[in-house]
């Protein structure tokens, strides 16, 4: 019963949502409206689990002295944001959003901008014509990069060539991957709905 009940819930929910996706019946539309709302609530609760786990790991790390200064900053930031949100709320023009706008956004943008430096360094060291496939990749990358700069407009053929590379070789590979992912998702979903795939229930059986 411990395993049959979840399997039954999974089967009924999976089948129901599958049918609902293709139906415009008023009942179907009502279900389509209600289920995502519960889905959002369930999702919000999973965040609580994430937060609890994050706090527990970091507090444990602080006690053991593992990367203590970083963990203290991390937990301190977390507690501050929760306290500020609890006192003044999270709408615009609150201290919570002031911290977000003036600390988090600049920090994240800075870290993201650093990528440009690492990409430059990595392209110097890694982009070598060591083999024929590597040479093809290298030439393609150079053409695409050049086509994205105003210098690319100096060569009439370059934007068209870059578009061709994107629209044919690149897109065909991506489509193949997408079709593969789609078929894989479909098969896995069917296996879960029917009950063949049971690893999500936990345990070995």
């Amino acid at each position: 019963m411990e395993r049959r009940l979840p399997l039954l819930v999974c089967f009924v929910s999976g089948l129901l949502m599958f049918i609902m996706y293709f139906s415009s019946h008023p009942t179907a539309r009502l279900i389509n409206l209600t289920v995502p709302l519960y889905w959002q609530i369930v999702f919000a609760f999973t965040l609580i689990i994430g937060v609890a786990s994050y706090l527990r790991n970091n507090v444990r790390g602080i006690k053991k002295g593992e990367s203590r200064p970083y963990r203290i900053v991390s937990v301190g930031g977390f507690v501050t944001m929760v306290a500020v949100a609890a006192i003044w709320g999270i709408k615009a023009d609150t201290p919570f959003m002031w911290i977000f706008e003036n600390i988090q956004i600049p920090m994240q943008s800075t870290v993201f901008a650093l990528l440009a430096f690492f990409v430059a360094s990595a392209s110097f060291r890694g982009f070598r014509a060591r083999s024929i496939p590597a040479t093809i990749l290298l030439i393609t990358a150079l053409l695409i990069l050049l086509s994205r700069t105003p210098l690319g407009n100096l060569f009439d053929f370059l934007p068209d060539l870059a578009d061709w590379l994107r629209n044919y070789p690149s897109m065909s590979a991506r489509r193949a991957i997408l079709v593969g992912i789609g078929l894989g998702s479909l098969t896995t979903s069917l296996r879960v709905i029917i009950g063949i795939e049971r690893t999500w229930l936990g345990g070995d059986k």
């Binding site: 430059a120 060291r125 982009f127 990358a141 990069l145 994205r148 700069t149 210098l151």
Partner: peptide, 17 residues
Amino acid sequence: AQSTAHLYVIVLIIIGN
């Protein structure tokens, strides 16, 4: 800025090779 970075990377790739 982005175009300059792209050109810089192109030059680096050529020098590297």
